[in-house]
Design a protein around this nucleic acid. Sequence first.
DNA 1: GTGGTCTAGACCACC
DNA 2: GTGGTCTAGACCACA
Lengths: 124, 124, 124, 124
Amino acid sequence: MITIDTRSRVPIYEQLEKQIIKLINLGIYETDSPLPSVRSMACELGINPNTVSKAYKGLEQQGVIYTVTGKGIFVNSTDLSKIHKQTIKALKNVLIDARNSGIQKPTIQKIINEIWEGAGNDSN
Amino acid sequence: MITIDTRSRVPIYEQLEKQIIKLINLGIYETDSPLPSVRSMACELGINPNTVSKAYKGLEQQGVIYTVTGKGIFVNSTDLSKIHKQTIKALKNVLIDARNSGIQKPTIQKIINEIWEGAGNDSN
Amino acid sequence: MITIDTRSRVPIYEQLEKQIIKLINLGIYETDSPLPSVRSMACELGINPNTVSKAYKGLEQQGVIYTVTGKGIFVNSTDLSKIHKQTIKALKNVLIDARNSGIQKPTIQKIINEIWEGAGNDSN
Amino acid sequence: MITIDTRSRVPIYEQLEKQIIKLINLGIYETDSPLPSVRSMACELGINPNTVSKAYKGLEQQGVIYTVTGKGIFVNSTDLSKIHKQTIKALKNVLIDARNSGIQKPTIQKIINEIWEGAGNDSN
DNA sequence: GTGGTCTAGACCACC
DNA sequence: GTGGTCTAGACCACA
């Protein structure tokens, strides 16, 4: 369900965070249901447990998941508004760059339509 | 005309590249007109000449400017299509993230309108 | 395995690039196998890490190697066709000069035979 | 008869030297006939007199031309063997690079045939 | 440990 | 004056 591209310039922990968010948004990870343990996730993806841990901590700090010591890690709620804020901030930056380099609004519209209607993969 | 935020996470050379592209797009730097020399730009912005050089090299590699050793650096053409490709690639990635985290299309539309109509600053 | 001539007019980073390409071509560096780290290569050759980094970046831009931040630098593929294009371009320029200065074809043939049959060192 | 590409990475004085050699080799500049004065050459080509002077000095040092103070600059002889040595040295270097990157001998042969039979321009 | 960025300061070739 | 190369040494993010 989760795929990591070790060659990508996007840090592994960010790839993980994004894909977990996607799975939560899709309803595959439900509120108060447990995520795979750090170890099993690391093993499954063939990455360093530290890296998984970093991703989990990032998500916890954003209020998306919570830890119960000795029990595991759980989805906090499917309210992703905090995440949205960050994403929108990043989006604004890129859009400003696009505008500054002279890309026209209709070009942007096309791209949006492509992505929202297209089969759309991930962004690594 | 150019401002650098040394505290930003965005590397200085990238900030410089973006702002130069903006100025070219606005027609302030015209085809075959010279850019400020590495040294004078560095002095003016209070940054290291090597950093300016790195930004210039990046733009040269993208075909935006060209170097005449011993004379200076010049705008190659105001055709920014290569730059556009890269920006659009980055834009697609962010839009995919936005969609995956559940942001709705109308929200995106609003942001676009804000940016294209608002006076909007830079993205550092 | 790699030797640098600091007194040569050829920049160190170019010497390094060429020799790494040679080693890849000889199959000594294989696809997906790691190159020496920037620091260890620099130490071994007695040059500055920045210079090694510059050589690696050049090769990465030519698609010969790829970087995994925090892990190292790896051979991308042993397909050197991009490199060949550049070399052939340079070769054409020198051959045109040779022809223009009145060097005869048989003279060139001799040289080629020498180089392809002789053990031939490097070009620094 | 002589064209300069100010945008080229090849230094202007080298471009000049090469083209003068070509003209001598073609017999357009004959032994003991005068070359254009530094000033007129500079003016005609729209370049700096210092640059023309540098090219002339280079050719003089290679024994291709000689100066008669107060009279002008003349073609020494159409024996270009010194020039040939340098060109051949450069050629060998590029050929070694070609071989080291895995380019095959027949590929080189093709290129040579192209250049010696083709209409062939200059190498800037 | 890895590479990426930045600075300060040096020397060179070209114009 | 211009840009190009190199060094030494610093700090950061990633795994």
